[in-house]
Design a protein around this nucleic acid. Structure first.
Length: 298
DNA sequence: GAGCCGTGGAA
DNA sequence: TTTCCAAGGCT
């Protein structure tokens, strides 16, 4: 039994029954799930994914609506630029690919919000192609089981893809299964903290385990604080604009944060990113939300 | 390549 | 309370 075989057997018996894993899920559904799962836990993604797919079952459905609706529907999943890019992605799919999610890796990579991981995930999980799919879970599992190190370094690069490629079965369908199995293993067994080695299918062959589960040496990555940062302020500003039905006066936005300098910087950043638009002299809206100016003046 | 980009739940 | 972490992407 290879590592991949072990992982697949374990996955067959232990995989979570997630909504986007149903056989009827479309490539668009897979793509939406992958974007939503970027840095957001499964438990929060599931209801959002269902709502999203019900409202916009195809890329064309989403592309036909303003970006602001995508950002609203995104709700509090976090990193709302993903909603903006997913909307742009839907438009690109309509314009470049006739509304069909492409199955070519390079064409996927060219889509907004689709990077190395997501492109490979869609090509593999939606189209059954044979590609190494390396996310943070796979990196951690391979790093521990194969290399015997407690945690993978910060950089995910070509080396990670090569390492995983060497573990993949030859047959595409099985290779895809191996990738999802490694991911699942990292998500629910070989977790970042308190790994459940007792139920791990790699228990007897894990290099990390055989060397005594050494702890990570030195300080891990820098703690990325949140409180008091521009990100928090952006979040507060966007939360107001998401719930607005019309242009929001600057004075209303002034209430969310006392530091005027930081507040202005955060708002300017949102505008520059394309999430927010100035409306008239002193109002703001979610980008794409602007009512016709004529109607406003009349 | 380091830093930035949201949010919430668990330890 | 604070810290850490969650299927990354982009500059």
């Amino acid at each position: 039994m290879t590592l991949a075989d072990e992982a697949i057997s374990w996955y067959d018996a232990n995989a979570r029954d997630l909504a986007w894993r149903q056989p009827e899920t479309t490539p668009w559904g897979v793509l939406v799930s992958e974007v939503m799962l970027q840095q957001t836990p499964v438990v929060r993604v599931e209801p959002a994914w269902r709502s999203w797919m019900t409202r916009w079952p195809t890329p064309a459905d989403l592309a036909a609506e303003p970006q602001s609706e995508a950002v609203r529907m995104w709700g509090r999943l976090g990193y709302p630029r993903r909603a903006m890019r997913l909307h742009a992605c839907a438009q690109a799919i309509v314009e470049r690919h006739g509304g069909v999610v492409p199955d070519d890796l390079d064409q996927l990579l060219a889509l907004p919000g689709v990077g190395t991981y997501t492109a490979r995930a869609v090509a593999t999980f939606a189209y059954g192609q044979r590609h190494p799919v390396v996310d943070t879970n796979v990196r951690r599992v391979v790093c521990r089981a194969v290399e015997g190190k407690p945690d993978a370094g910060p950089a995910t690069t070509a080396a990670d893809l090569v390492a995983m490629a060497e573990l993949l079965p030859a047959e595409p369908a099985r290779a895809a299964r191996a990738s999802i199995a490694f991911m699942e293993l990292g998500a629910i067994v070989c977790t970042a903290r308190a790994p459940k080695c007792g139920v791990c299918p790699f228990h007897d062959v894990c290099a990390w385990r055989q060397t005594g589960l050494p702890l990570p040496e030195g300080p891990s990555r820098k703690p990325q604080r949140y409180a008091g940062t521009d990100r928090q302020v952006r979040g507060l500003l966007l939360e107001v604009l998401r719930h607005a039905t019309g242009p929001v006066p600057r004075q209303r936005l002034d209430l969310v944060w006392t530091d005027q300098v930081q507040r202005a910087r955060a708002l300017a950043g949102l505008v520059e990113d394309g999430l927010v638009e100035a409306y008239g002299a002193d109002d703001f809206v979610l980008a794409g939300d602007a009512p016709p100016v004529e109607r406003q003046i009349l």
